[in-house]
């Protein structure tokens, strides 16, 4: 499991720029990101190189932020790779709450939040998927 930070951002022009400026100034590098949006606000979910530092920086700046653990799986960067994971989860009655991805050299990393994380991890390992841990912060 890897540490993901979720940040509340009002859905208005300029808000993301203020946020990214803060991260840049504090030399925090974003490894992966996704935004879920509604009419008035969005939830930005990020994997960063230094989650502890990032959490402190955001709290200090009065952001509404929470930490969640998500599963990171490395797959080959080729057609059908995501399907294997989606099928594995679906066949075993695990609901994917959200999913996003990022790239690393020659491979893709899939980030998933599921309703039964322990069961999902067990299945992925059994099927010999490459589940990532702390190394994700350094990709």
């Amino acid at each position: 499991m890897v540490r993901q930070l979720s940040v509340f951002l009002p859905n208005k022009p300029g808000i993301l720029a203020i946020f990214t400026e803060l991260l840049g100034k504090n030399s925090i590098n974003i490894r992966a990101l996704t935004v879920a949006d509604t009419a008035d606000y969005g939830i930005l979910r990020i994997i960063v190189d230094d989650p502890t530092k990032c959490l402190n920086v955001l709290k200090e700046a009065n952001y509404l932020v929470s930490e969640t653990e998500v599963i990171a799986v490395e797959v080959e960067d080729k057609p059908g790779a995501l399907h294997q994971i989606a099928k594995l989860m679906g066949d075993n009655g695990i609901n994917i709450e959200y999913i996003y991805s990022t790239l690393k050299a020659g491979a893709a990393v899939i980030l998933i939040r599921v309703n039964k994380p322990e069961k999902a991890l067990e299945l992925l390992k059994k099927e010999s998927f490459k589940v990532l841990g702390d190394e994700i912060y350094k990709i």
Binding site: S6, F8, A36, T38, I43, R45, V65, T68, R113
Partner: peptide, 15 residues
């Protein structure tokens, strides 16, 4: 303003 304890990473919780 939502209190930090009730802020969730899931839109479904927030909605």
């Amino acid at each position: 303003e939502v209190t930090p304890e009730y802020f969730s990473d899931k839109i479904s919780d927030m909605e």
